[in-house]
Structure formats: structure tokens, C-alpha cells
């Protein structure tokens, strides 16, 4: 999984920056943005191997963002991050083309396994 570039999208600064740091320690390079619009703009200029996308964000929701991403970058694997009680959104996201979803708080080992599976 070396040299992977991950796009992390979540409006919770502390969560996403800490997660990015943990991925960095494992040799995974990641870029963070805090909303769907910024993620869509960034995808037009930079290449990523995978995207981690929070479902519940202010402004453009995770599922709306996913819809746009799947039109312009259909091959980019997307893993959704949902809250408990929002697993319905996770299932809906998979129907819309997301590779899988994880319920927050995320277990890093589970996340790495999902990333690995998504890239196979």
C-alpha cells in the first residue's frame, strides 16, 4: 500500500487531521478537505487512489458529494464514514457506488483492511 494517496473529507478538523497523521505513520499520504465542494474541486486537479468521505457534513452532504464524484471519477473507490444510526446512509451510499462504509469511531485496522480491499 506504499505511495498511496488518500483524499480525506470530513468537517471535523481534529478527527481528520489525527486520522491523516495516523495514516502518514503507516506510509500512506493523505490530503484533507472539510467539505464536499472542496473535494470535488480538488479531484479535478489532483489524482487520488482512494477517498474517505464523511456522510454527515454541513453544506453538500456526503451522499451528494458521492453522486458528483461517481459521475466525474467513476473508478475512484470511495469509503464512507457514517455515524451509528446512519448505517442506512452507508447502505444507500453503496447502492450509489461507494465501495463500502465504516461506522465512526473508526478502528484503524478495519480502515486499513477496507482500503486494501478497495484497491485490489
Amino acid at each position: 500500500m506504499d505511495n498511496l494517496k488518500i483524499l480525506l473529507v470530513d468537517d471535523e478538523d481534529d478527527f481528520i487531521n489525527t486520522l491523516a497523521e495516523r495514516l502518514e505513520l503507516r506510509g500512506l499520504k493523505s490530503l484533507t478537505v472539510h467539505d464536499g465542494e472542496s473535494a470535488i474541486r480538488l479531484l479535478d486537479t489532483e489524482q487520488f487512489d482512494i477517498m474517505l468521505l464523511d456522510v454527515m457534513m454541513p453544506g453538500m452532504s456526503g451522499l451528494e458529494t458521492l453522486k458528483h464524484v461517481k459521475i466525474d471519477h467513476p473508478d475512484l473507490p470511495v469509503i464512507l464514514l457514517t455515524g451509528h444510526g446512519s448505517t442506512k446512509d452507508g447502505m444507500e451510499g453503496m447502492r450509489m457506488g461507494a465501495f463500502d462504509y465504516l461506522v465512526k469511531p473508526v478502528n484503524i485496522k478495519d480502515l486499513l483492511k477496507k482500503i486494501e480491499a478497495a484497491l485490489k
Partner: peptide
């Protein structure tokens, strides 16, 4: 109440990631 629990969940996610980062370090 349900909407507040989503915020609480974010708090726990941050604490979990932070303790995970301490473990990683």
C-alpha cells in the same frame, strides 16, 4: 436529541483517534 448524539459521536471519534495516535507514536 438524535441530532445531538451525532455531535457526541464525533467527540468520541476524535478522542479515539487521538488515543490511537498516542499508541502509534
Amino acid at each position: 436529541t438524535a441530532s445531538t448524539t451525532h455531535e457526541m459521536k464525533n467527540v468520541f471519534a476524535i478522542i479515539k483517534e487521538s488515543s490511537g495516535l498516542m499508541e502509534d507514536i
